[in-house]
C-alpha cells in the first residue's frame, strides 16, 4: 500500500488525520470505559470522577435473583449455541470448501447471511414460526443464537480449511486411516485454531445477542443483555446495570485473552 508517509501527505493532513483517529477511538471506547468505571462506584448514583472504588454493585448484582438467573441463562445459552454453531459451521465449511460454482456460492452466502441480515427481522420471523409450530422458549433461544453465531464459525473454519493442504488427508488414507480417523487425527488437529476461534466468536456473539432475543425471551427466562435493556427502559439507569455490563466486558476480555493463548499455543505446536 502507499504508505501515507509524511512526505506524500497533503499539507495539514499530518495533523488532522491523527486527531480524527484519536477522537474516533475516544468515542468508540469511551462509553464502554465509563460503564466499567461506573460499576465500581461506591455511591448510590454515578458521579464522575467517582469518589472511590467499591464492589457493592457487583454484590448487589448477584443478590438480585433475576440478574443472577439472566447471567446464568446467558452463559448456558452461549455455551450450547456456540458448540452447536461450531459443529454445524464446521460441517458446512468442510462440505463447501472445495466446491466451486454457483450453487456453492449461494450456499456460502446462506451460511454467512445472518452476519448482515437485519436480525430483528429474523427474531420476528422466528417468534411467529415458534408460535405457529409450538417451540419452547429455551430451545427457541438456542436455535436463534445458533443461527446468529454460525456465520462467525463458518468464516473462521472456512479460512482455516482454505489454507489446509488436502494431500494430508490423502497421506492419512494412504497409511490406512479411514475417513473418520483421517478427520479426527489429521484434519481436525490442523484446522483446530480456526475451530477454536470460531467457537469463541460464536460464544461472544451469543452472549451479547440482542435483536433476536428481544422477541424470544419470556418471563423468568431472560438473557443478560435483555435484562439490562429492560432495566434501562423501565427502571432507569441504576448502577447494578453498570455492574452487569462490566461483567460482560470483563468476560469478553478474558475470552479474548483465551483466544490469544489457545490459538497461539496451537500455532506454537504446529511450528
Amino acid at each position: 500500500m502507499m504508505k501515507p508517509g509524511k512526505r506524500g501527505r497533503a499539507p495539514g493532513a499530518a495533523l488532522v488525520l491523527p486527531a480524527i483517529t484519536i477522537l474516533a477511538y475516544l468515542v468508540i471506547i469511551g462509553p464502554i470505559a465509563i460503564v466499567v468505571i461506573a460499576a465500581f462506584s461506591p455511591t448510590e448514583f454515578f458521579v464522575f470522577p467517582p469518589p472511590g472504588l467499591s464492589l457493592r454493585w457487583f454484590v448487589e448484582f448477584f443478590r438480585l435473583d433475576n440478574m443472577r438467573s439472566a447471567f446464568a441463562l446467558s452463559l448456558e445459552l452461549a455455551l450450547s449455541a456456540a458448540s452447536l454453531a461450531t459443529i454445524l459451521a464446521s460441517m458446512a465449511a468442510l462440505a463447501l470448501v472445495r466446491r466451486r460454482g454457483a450453487l456453492a456460492g449461494v450456499l456460502q452466502g446462506l451460511f454467512l447471511a445472518p452476519l448482515v441480515f437485519p436480525t430483528i427481522i429474523l427474531g420476528l420471523a422466528l417468534l411467529l414460526f415458534y408460535k405457529t409450530v409450538g417451540v419452547g422458549i429455551l430451545p427457541g433461544l438456542v436455535l436463534a443464537h445458533v443461527l446468529v453465531g454460525t456465520p462467525y464459525c463458518f468464516r473462521s473454519v472456512l479460512t482455516s480449511l482454505q489454507s489446509f493442504d488436502f494431500t494430508l488427508e490423502e497421506a492419512g488414507q494412504s497409511l490406512g486411516a479411514g475417513p473418520f480417523r483421517t478427520f479426527f487425527l489429521v484434519t481436525l488437529p490442523v484446522i483446530w485454531p480456526g475451530v477454536v476461534s470460531g467457537w469463541f466468536f460464536a460464544f461472544i456473539v451469543s452472549f451479547g445477542e440482542l435483536n433476536t432475543a428481544l422477541f424470544l425471551t419470556g418471563p423468568g427466562e431472560t438473557t443478560l443483555p435483555i435484562e439490562i435493556f429492560s432495566y434501562l427502559q423501565f427502571q432507569g439507569s441504576q448502577l447494578v446495570i453498570a455492574a452487569a455490563s462490566a461483567l460482560q466486558v470483563g468476560l469478553i476480555l478474558v475470552l479474548i485473552l483465551a483466544i490469544e493463548r489457545l490459538v497461539g499455543l496451537a500455532r506454537l505446536a504446529r511450528s
Partner: peptide, 20 residues
C-alpha cells in the same frame, strides 16, 4: 476398494507430513 484398505503407501510431492 477405498485407499485406506489397499496395500500401498505413498510419498507425496509436497511430502504431506502431518504438521501437528
Amino acid at each position: 476398494v477405498p485407499p485406506y484398505r489397499r496395500d500401498f503407501s505413498m510419498v507425496f510431492q509436497s511430502f504431506a507430513l502431518f504438521p501437528h
